[in-house]
Amino acid sequence: MTPFIEVKNLTHKYSAGTPFEHTALDDVSFSLERGEFIGVIGHTGSGKSTLMQHLNGLLKPDSGEILLDGVDIWQDKKTTRQTRFRVGLVFQYPEYQLFEETVYKDIAFGPKNMGLKADEIDRRVKESAAAVGLSDEQLTVSPFDLSGGQKRRVAIAGVLAMEPELLILDEPTAGLDPAGREEILNYIDSYRKAKHATIMMVSHSMGDVARMADRLIVMNKSKIALMDTPAEVFRHADELVQMGLNIPVLTQVFMKLKQLGLPVEPVYTQAQAVKALTALKGGNADA
């Protein structure tokens, strides 16, 4: 079976042929399945953003190809444009891209560009607004009257309204308070479950990606350094630290405990930690 998304030997150079030439992606290959939650971590400048912009056809690869359901997204102009709608991209600080007079109109921008009918646009706007916890009254106000966190939700809803099969988010929780972060992450996960969509999330919060993601992609120096389940990835703690990354605080604590001679294996989520600790006490984890 053809994978949902397949990236083959993708290479991208910025300012090719000038003294400022810089290889941002170097022979990157991987594939994604439908319904997966992928976390992307990597040091600033490791090529994460460049990779994301390739997946929906904003940047053209210098070599290599990106297949969406087995079709090269650069096959022809129509396919590329269609890819933009099938692969939704939420940039960093997306609230700075709002421009319409009302929240409703701003969310409707994407669906409108898709050429959908008015009632379908209306359904999608309302659905995606509700999906990020915006009330009906908020649809009629100007997006510039909202708070920072609310604006972020409007911007994410604007992409959700296109109902992308692959949703890519670049640090969607940056600069939000803990409660706001938790909510946004939950909205993203419910969207994945509701539409059986694939999620790709760049984050600098190891705890967040460890908890949410099925698999992690670790980018380092324009290449994929590791791609595996969080448990496997965080086993390479020393390598991660060398790449200027870190492992979740919980995992650090457990590694230290292990060093101190306690019979525990490193964990990376709260649930696992509770289980491991109760087991240690000799109790029942489910109690």
Binding site: Q53, N56, L58, R81, R84, F85, G88, L89, F91, P94, Y96, Q97, F109, G110, N113, M114, G158, V159, M162
Partner: peptide, 11 residues
């Protein structure tokens, strides 16, 4: 901003 709006299908 151009990239972001293009990602939303602006032409």
């Amino acid at each position: 901003i151009m990239s972001a709006q293009k990602a939303r299908g602006a032409d």
